[in-house]
Design a protein around this nucleic acid. Structure first.
Lengths: 196, 196
DNA sequence: CATACTAGCTAACGCTCATAAGTTTGCCGT
DNA sequence: ACGGCAAACTTATGAGCGTTAGCTAGTATG
């Protein structure tokens, strides 16, 4: 009998779960399907995870924290609202072209987390939302942006970026850089800041 | 024993399913939960539907067809690209404020349909997508719009509207008309057509 | 060469789900 | 007043789920 010593790693389980959760949703994915992709029997997965739920928490937690880290790094040491918004949207939109599966799972299945994790994750997402909104508010106050409602503009810009995950094709002709550059222009148009 | 003659209607079953599907997703909703809301035993639901799957098909089919009807009615007898885009976005964004649950289910659970319905629904959605894209292409060709990629602009505008369903509050201070008017401005900004 | 560990495996559990079959009950038209 | 229908009910079935327990076989360590 052949049985290699480490045929499956924890990272491989998470990665496969990510792919299937993104395709069929958390509740629509069975552990047996993850096991099948990895060519392993279902109970063997438990050597690499504690539960199906933990898998979802890991994926969503890592992603949401990554978004905030990206944002902080992109806006650190920048004071100008236009500069801050530009770089915030640039990294946010690029992330959704390069991390499509993660974005889809976060947006579809955060509601499937149970408390208190669910509230924690929603708080983190709200933090990003309010940060973008503040930048827009600052820009309006400084007379650099022209928009009736910073809240609506913030929603529109963020969700526009999120949706990249739904249509972007990984092997396609258009690079993440091109997408993010174009979407950043869209965002600046929305707040009435024109093009850079 | 008291048992009224028609305590539950087909419409009530669909409506309750709509609410729960939007909240927890198709796979995350059990028929027993729908029955509980209607204060009825689970098997009684089968007096008003053929299967759980048919419920999803009804909801998604009606919604997707409604979107296309809305679009056709809004753009009929209009030739000017700016005029066409304005009204297309107006009805699309308003629909997502007034039909939040439907939009959430369509966007989350169309992938849970099985063939051939799934492909049919995706074809209808693509039809709307391409219609918007054509309007933008026409506007660019006529020198009325200024945008690098009509396809990207179309994605951005549509998904921005779709996301209204995710944050809009039904009883809130802001009306669907206000939202749709503001989002229409956003859309025109994206294509570089300025404000009306 | 013996030991301990690791990561597979099979078998089985308890639960929930969608759905089916057959039964009861109350209203409506004749 | 009564027969029939419609819509509820109870009960049951079989499939699939996540998870646990216990076993086996390779690998690395001493």
């Amino acid at each position: 009998m052949t049985a290699a010593r480490e045929s499956v790693s924890t990272a491989a389980v998470v990665d496969t779960a990510l792919t299937l959760f993104a395709e069929r949703g958390y509740h629509g994915t069975a552990l047996s399907q993850i096991a099948e992709v990895l060519q392993v029997r279902t109970p063997s997965l438990y050597n690499h995870m504690r539960s199906k739920h933990e898998l979802l928490e890991t994926i969503i937690g890592d992603t949401v924290r990554g978004v905030l880290d990206d944002f902080r790094e992109a806006t650190a040491n920048r004071g100008d609202p236009l500069d801050r918004l530009y770089h915030a949207v640039l990294v946010y939109s690029r992330r959704h072209a390069t991390h499509r599966r993660e974005a889809i799972v976060v947006n579809r299945d955060t509601s499937s987390l149970d408390e208190p994790t669910r509230s924690q994750m929603q708080a983190l997402r709200r933090e990003h939302e309010h940060a973008i909104r503040s930048i827009i508010g600052d820009g309006v106050a400084a007379g650099r942006f022209s928009v009736d409602s910073p809240a609506l503009a913030s929603f529109a810009i963020r969700e526009m970026c999120v949706s990249i995950a739904r249509w972007y094709q990984d092997g396609g002709p258009i690079t993440p850089e091109q997408v993010s550059r174009e979407y950043t222009e869209f965002a600046l148009s929305i707040v009435g800041a024109g093009r850079m």
